[in-house]
Design a protein around this nucleic acid. Structure first.
Length: 531
RNA sequence: CGGGACGUGGCCCAGCCUGGUAGGGCGCCUGCUUCGGAUGCAGGAGGUCGCAGGUUCAAAUCCUGCCGUCCCGACCA
C-alpha cells in the first residue's frame, strides 16, 4: 500500500467540490480512519491498487483466501449482480429465451469432441477424478462453459425444423483455472449467464448473434451507463470453437479496454460434434446452426472502473442496491427522536416511489436506508460515499423547521455544486427525475472520457508513443488483416486488436494503409491494451 | 507458469539486518460524551507472527520447502 505522507488523504473528487472542510493539522495516522477503516489509494498514484481498495472499502467482495483465485462476493456486491441479473433476464425473455439449468460436471470426453474447443479450454480445466470415495471411470470436468453438455442435450431435443429455434439461457457458475486472477475481472470461479441457441439456418443464427450483442450493448449503456464499442473479434481472439465472435468493448478510466460481453456464431461446429441434427422442411437432414453468448460478474469490475472515483464506488441508480441514504442530524435526545421520526416518515414516502423505466416488466421501488448508527454524521457521509449510494439526504432540526431536506449527490452534477436545500414536497416530486438525470450524467461523463481518449493513429511512431509504458487509449488504426501483423503489434506494444467495429461503431469505413506494414486495409479497427 | 513485492489480532503497519518468545494506530465491546464532512474520554476483548520442516539452549526474527495475496508478463468472461 502506498502512503501519502503529509496532509490528509482527501479524495480528489471530494476536495474538488467546495464543501468547506477545514484543513486538519497533519497527524501520523490520517490515512487509516473512518468506520470501514481502510484507505483508498488515489487513481493517479496506482490504478490497480485503487481498484482493489474500492472493492474492499465498498464491501463488494474479498479474496476467498482459502480457495485460490476465488472471491467471496459480499452482500453489497451481490446485490448489484442481482440487479444486473434481473435486468438482463427480462431482456432475454423479451427476446424469446427461456431459462434452464444443466449439470456443473461435464464428462471429460465431451470437451474433446470439438477440436478447437479442447485446445482452447484444456489448459484451464478443473477435473473431478474421485467421488464417493472411489476413482471415477471417466473424470468429470467442472464446466468452463456449457456448449458441450448443452450440445449433447440439444441432440436429444431436436428432431425437426419445427423444434427450432431452440432458445435457452442458463444462469450458472463456471470455473476456469486462469493463470492470473483479479477480483471480478478474472476469478477462477465466476458467475455468468450463457445463452445457447440452435437454428435451422446460418442466417437465422447470425441474426441471433447480432440481436444478443445488441441486447448487451443496450444493457451496458442504458443500465450500467457504460458506453461500449460493438464489434467482431479477429480470428485469433475468437471463442474456441466459434466461426465468429462478436463483442462489446468498454474503456476503463485508465484507457484500457474491457471485453464486457461476447456473442458467438458457432456455425455447425458443435452440431457436428454432438450430432445435433434436424429434418428440414424438404425432408433433408442437416446439422443445427448454434450460437452462444454470455456476460459475467466481470461486468461489476467494469462498472467499478467506469464510474468510481477517488472517494470510492459510484453506482448508477439503475444498479444501486441502495438509492438514498438518510443521515439524521441532531443534538440531544429530544431532537434525536423528532429527527428520527421525520427520517422514518421521509423513508416511508420514498420507498413507495417506483423508478422503473417506462416499459419495464418489473417495479423498481426506491431502496432507502436511514442511518441511525451511533456515529458522527461526517463519518457516515464518508462511509456511504465509499459504497456508492447515489443520493444522500441530511435531515436535521433546521430542515424540520423549514420542511426541507438537504440533498447531496454522490457525484456533483456541476463543479462547485454541493449540498442543495430543497422543500420536502419538491424533493419527493422530483427524486425520480433526479435519479434519471444522475444516471444520464454518468453515461455522458463516461462517453466523454471514452471519446477524449479515442484517437485515430496513422503512423507506427504515433502508435508506439500512444502505448508506451502502461499507457493505453482506444486507437483506431488500419490493419492489413493478417494474423502475423496482429501478433507483431501485440508483441511490440502489448496492445491488441479489440475488435473490428460494426457499422456505426467507429470511424466511418475508409480504405487506408496498415499502421505497421503499410499494406491495404478496408477500415480501421479498435486497438487497445486490455484487461 | 516466468519476473518482482509481500504474508504479524477485523484493517493498515512496526519489530526481523544485530534470535531471547509480540507492539502501535484504526476498527470492535462496555459506559460516558458528541453529532450539518470522519481522528472526544475511560475501561476492555482479541494474535499457534501464512503453513511445514530445519538450525539453535532459545525463532516473528536465520535456512529450506510449500500455500496464498498483489503487481508485471504468457492465457482467458
Amino acid at each position: 500500500m502506498s502512503t501519502h505522507s503529509g496532509g490528509p488523504c482527501l479524495p480528489a473528487a471530494a476536495s474538488a467540490s467546495s464543501r468547506g472542510m477545514k484543513p486538519k493539522a497533519s497527524s501520523e495516522h490520517e490515512e487509516h480512519i473512518g468506520k470501514a477503516g481502510g484507505k483508498i489509494t488515489l487513481r493517479a498514484d496506482d490504478y490497480p491498487q485503487w481498484y482493489q481498495d474500492v472493492i474492499r472499502e465498498a464491501e463488494m467482495a474479498e479474496p476467498a483466501k482459502v480457495v485460490k483465485g476465488c472471491m467471496v462476493i459480499k452482500p453489497h456486491g451481490y446485490a448489484v449482480w442481482e440487479k444486473i441479473q434481473r435486468e438482463l433476464d427480462g431482456r432475454f425473455k423479451a427476446t424469446g429465451h427461456k431459462n434452464a439449468y444443466f449439470p456443473l460436471l461435464i464428462p471429460q470426453s465431451f470437451i474433446t469432441k470439438e477440436a478447437e474447443h479442447v485446445e482452447g479450454f484444456a489448459p484451464e480445466l478443473a477435473v473431478v477424478t474421485h467421488a464417493g470415495g472411489e476413482a471415477l471411470d471417466e473424470p468429470y470436468v467442472i464446466r468452463p462453459t456449457s456448449e458441450t453438455v448443452i450440445g449433447y442435450f440439444f441432440s436429444h431435443w431436436v428432431d425437426s425444423y419445427r423444434d427450432l429455434p431452440l432458445l435457452i439461457n442458463q444462469w450458472a457458475n463456471v470455473m476456469r483455472w486462469e493463470k492470473r486472477t483479479r477480483m471480478f475481472l478474472r476469478t477462477t470461479e465466476f458467475l455468468w449467464q450463457e445463452g445457447h441457441t440452435a437454428h435451422a439456418s446460418h442466417e437465422e443464427a447470425q441474426e441471433e448473434v447480432r440481436r444478443m450483442l445488441g441486447v448487451y450493448g443496450d444493457f451496458a449503456e442504458e443500465v450500467m451507463a457504460m458506453p461500449v464499442i460493438r464489434g467482431v473479434k479477429t480470428d485469433s481472439e475468437k471463442f474456441a470453437g466459434a466461426l465468429q465472435s462478436t463483442c462489446i468493448e468498454a474503456m476503463m478510466q485508465d484507457g484500457k479496454a474491457l471485453q464486457a460481453g461476447t456473442s458467438h456464431d458457432l456455425g455447425q461446429n458443435f452440431g457436428r460434434a454432438f450430432n445435433v441434427m434436424f429434418q428440414t422442411q424438404s425432408g433433408a437432414r442437416d446439422y443445427v446452426w448454434q450460437t452462444s453468448w454470455g456476460v459475467s460478474t466481470r461486468l461489476i469490475g467494469g462498472l467499478i472502473m467506469t464510474h468510481s472515483d477517488d472517494a470510492g464506488l459510484v453506482l448508477p441508480p439503475r444498479l444501486a442496491p441502495i438509492h438514498i441514504v438518510i443521515v439524521p442530524i441532531f443534538r440531544g435526545d429530544d431532537e434525536r427522536s423528532r429527527v428520527l421520526a421525520a427520517c422514518a416518515k421521509l423513508r416511508d414516502q420514498l420507498v413507495d416511489i417506483d423508478i422503473a423505466p417506462p416499459r419495464a416488466r418489473y417495479r423498481d421501488f426506491l431502496e432507502v436506508v436511514v442511518d441511525d448508527r451511533d456515529m458522527k454524521p461526517g463519518a457516515k457521509f464518508y462511509d456511504w460515499e465509499r459504497k456508492g449510494v447515489p443520493v444522500r439526504v441530511e435531515l436535521g432540526p433546521k430542515d424540520l423547521e423549514k420542511d426541507q431536506v438537504c440533498v447531496k449527490m454522490r457525484v456533483d452534477s456541476e463543479a462547485g455544486k454541493g449540498k442543495e436545500f430543497i422543500p420536502t414536497a419538491q424533493f419527493l416530486a422530483t427524486v425520480r427525475e433526479r435519479l434519471t438525470k444522475f444516471q444520464d450524467a454518468l453515461l455522458a461523463a463516461a462517453r466523454q472520457r471514452t471519446l477524449a481518449r479515442s484517437v485515430e493513429l496513422n503512423t507506427w511512431d504515433e502508435f508506439l508513443r500512444t502505448f508506451a509504458g502502461e499507457q493505453s487509449s482506444f486507437a483506431w488504426c488500419h490493419w492489413d488483416g493478417t494474423r502475423e501483423t496482429e501478433a507483431k503489434i501485440k508483441e511490440q506494444t502489448r496492445a491488441t486488436i479489440r475488435c473490428i467495429p460494426l457499422p456505426g461503431q467507429g470511424p466511418a469505413p475508409e480504405p487506408g494503409a496498415c499502421i505497421l506494414t503499410g499494406k491495404p486495409s478496408p477500415q480501421r479497427v479498435l486497438i487497445a491494451k486490455a484487461y
